[in-house]
Design a protein around this nucleic acid. Sequence first.
DNA 1: GTGAAAGCGCTAACAT
DNA 2: ATGTTAGCGCTTTCAC
Lengths: 366, 366
Amino acid sequence: MSSDGARRRDVTVADVAKAAQVSKAQAARALGNYGAVSEDVRERVLAAAEELDYRPNELARSMNTGKSHTIGVVVGDIENPHFGLATRGITDTAKKSGFNVILVNTDENTAAEVDAVRVLLDKRVDGLIVAPASSVETQHLRRVHDSGRPLVLLDRSAEGLEVETVAVDMAAISYESTRYLLQTGHRRIAFISTLRTDAAYTAGMRLDSSQISDRLDGMRRAFADMGCAFPEDLVRLNAGGADSIRNLTRDVLQGNDAATAVVASDGLIALSVVEAIQELGLAIPADVSFLMYDDFAWTRLTTPPLTVIAQPVYDMGVAAASALIRQIEGRPPAAAAPEFSATLVRRGSVGVVPASSGESVEVPAL
Amino acid sequence: MSSDGARRRDVTVADVAKAAQVSKAQAARALGNYGAVSEDVRERVLAAAEELDYRPNELARSMNTGKSHTIGVVVGDIENPHFGLATRGITDTAKKSGFNVILVNTDENTAAEVDAVRVLLDKRVDGLIVAPASSVETQHLRRVHDSGRPLVLLDRSAEGLEVETVAVDMAAISYESTRYLLQTGHRRIAFISTLRTDAAYTAGMRLDSSQISDRLDGMRRAFADMGCAFPEDLVRLNAGGADSIRNLTRDVLQGNDAATAVVASDGLIALSVVEAIQELGLAIPADVSFLMYDDFAWTRLTTPPLTVIAQPVYDMGVAAASALIRQIEGRPPAAAAPEFSATLVRRGSVGVVPASSGESVEVPAL
DNA sequence: GTGAAAGCGCTAACAT
DNA sequence: ATGTTAGCGCTTTCAC
């Protein structure tokens, strides 16, 4: 057991130096592993450090070197498995290069994001990975970039900001999957997202999220290619909590011209949407077809298993961290920036349009 | 737009002081909001700071004050929604009190945990929340505690370490739910966990995880109370990846004296177990009953919905962070430490034992 | 190879 | 209320 139990003051290089009978500078060099140190001195210093249980003060070290070996990660919601997985990719990669991660949750709130970025900058992180809540309000990100601190965007891009962005081609996969729904006969396709907007949704409105507008663009293009009009009336944004999502789902699924297929914008929404469908007593895919973004393991367990759009989330986290660390270390960009693409995984939740719905609405027998 | 674009050196108090025509000390006081400063000086300093776009260097600040306003969080797997939720509770609470969170993932590996703790200490975090990978190998945690740095344990306790621990009473809920299974007629109950052990599982062996041994203890007690022998032969540890879990599941479900009920130790395992059961062509709960730890939203979506053991994970995260921050700020413990308990949520995955199985094994007609 | 001394940006005594 | 002077623990000239 060590002699003196709980000591107050930490032991410093000065202490080690004294114990090893060398100058503070030499001790620091030996401990910090830089400069020129004779084998003899190094051994004595290391022994003394061991003996005293010396631990470097990384704060002091960071102050001199200007590098904190820490990166800031700002996400909308760590509770969402999507970000959980991405974060895992980031932390795994960071650790491999000796970086730590400070994680901040913004709740998809831009004000919180602005604050988070400021705080992380004040803490002198070496770089930042941000999944921006808004693709439009991006002055704070621009300032990061202008200040010369490396920045990598995840999932969503920021308008007019030329920074490395790791994201999948949403318009493409949205086009592909919508086309699939169209070919299966669907024309009344609803889209439900949590994206918060100031005004109510209208056809051409400019959206805060590149991700969502790309998806809508993809859908519109698919409809246009089929010579059909995109059902703007079935787009539902501002899906808040579970109750709100359930209401919106009921909303698009009822009435004369109800949706025959529903697309859920992420895994969290999907849960409530499917629940609402079940509560309505509708069967998937017999009565209504269902498609969702993100391929979580549980989507294989439902009856029927769910058709999903799979994104390489973990790999994207890895890529974001790699790119950031590369920038931090001043290395040149890789020859080709890796392109990420989502894939449509057809399982069992998309079926043909039920006879009673569709183009022609028949008046009930009654 | 600001005048000089990307500057090299950061602006410091000295710069602000000069601009505001006051001493460095006065500027620092005004900026740091401490000491006595006249209204006049304060205004000039703040104006100058604004003008120069001054940002405090939190590293320097931390070095003097000794407080970094940062807490370290060490978990086994952030990808597991269980920890995702807990982390959310922690970060939400931390932010409210002005603390940041450095997150480290250990992959349930003790060596990584030891390292993580050391690094965080070196970074001078104000306190630590750890979900220990092992309840036995805890010297590194003891050293944290001895060094006087606040420490709170999450989910699992550490042998002989008297630190605040936020966890549910696992033995109790395990007893309760096992009793439920027994009353439903089950005697062959399998338990599957990812817990890694050095040696193969044997009846009385000492387990590394307080969580798992508590669960097994609860099960044994429930069996004893019913006057039955606990089927030690159906305990499966070291369930690694999805394939491994599937194999173990098949294993306990086949043969003469197969399990009639399976308990999955966490949400991640549960996914693979259910998949394996489905692949085996067995129906839940007609052929085999199923019970799992953690109440994730998706467990309501399967057919049938799954019977689960719900833990107040978010609240536990909140409690852990609150307790830690209280310790950091030197406030006394709350009158009564909050007790957390899990609850058995009976949905549809537990049913009566199928006629062909159970106590007496009948020789097939053949 | 080694040591003395000067910072890093800030807070904290200590005077005035 | 204000300014001067020391540090915090480390890295980094710059001499020797």
